[in-house]
Amino acid sequence: MDKLIHVVEDDDDIRFIVEYILTESGYKVESSSNASAFYKSLEHTTPDLILLDVMLPDGNGIDICRDLREKESTRDIKIIVMSAHAAEKAVLEEACSDDFISKPFDLDDLLRHVKRFVPR
C-alpha cells in the first residue's frame, strides 16, 4: 500500500517539484495551497506524513502543527515543517513538529528527511 504524503505549500513551483519528486519516488501525494484546503482534505484522508510550509496565505504552519498535535485523530501524523524564514530549533519546539527543512532545500535531502518517517 502506498504511503500518503500531504504537501501544504502556497508556492506553485515548489509544490509542483515536491509532488513530482515524491511521486517519482513511489509515494502517493496530495497537496494544498492553503490551510483551509488542507483542513478540508483531512475530512476525507489521513496522510502518513505532512510537509507543512510555515507561511501560508490563510494561516501559519506553526499554528496548524500545534492544532494537529492537539487533536486525537491527527496527533500521531508525522509532520515536517518547511520554511525559509524560521529558525530550526524554534520551529521544532514551537510547532511540535517531527523535523524541519530549511528552504531552499536540496531534493535529495528532502527525500532523506521523508524516508526517515515514511520508508519505501
Rank of each mutant, 00 (worst) to 15 (best):
F105G: 07
L42T: 09
L42M: 08
T45K: 14
D109F: 13
F100P: 04
D98W: 05
V18N: 09
R116D: 07
R66I: 07
I80P: 10
L22W: 02
H113N: 12
S25K: 14
R112A: 12
F117D: 04
A95Q: 07
L52P: 03
R116K: 15
R15N: 14
K89A: 15
I79W: 04
E94I: 01
V29K: 08
S36A: 10
L111K: 11
R69S: 06
P119T: 06
R66N: 06
I79A: 12
D109P: 00
V8I: 00
R112M: 11
L110H: 07
A84T: 08
L49I: 12
H6A: 12
H44A: 10
H113T: 04
V54T: 04
L49K: 05
L110E: 02
S25E: 15
L49D: 09
R112S: 12
L51I: 09
I80Q: 06
V8F: 03
H85V: 11
A87D: 15
V29W: 10
I80K: 00
R75K: 15
E19N: 14
E88L: 06
S33V: 11
P104R: 01
E72A: 12
M82W: 11
D106P: 06
E93A: 13
V81R: 00
V54N: 01
K40P: 05
I77V: 14
D12G: 10
P47W: 09
D53H: 05
E72F: 04
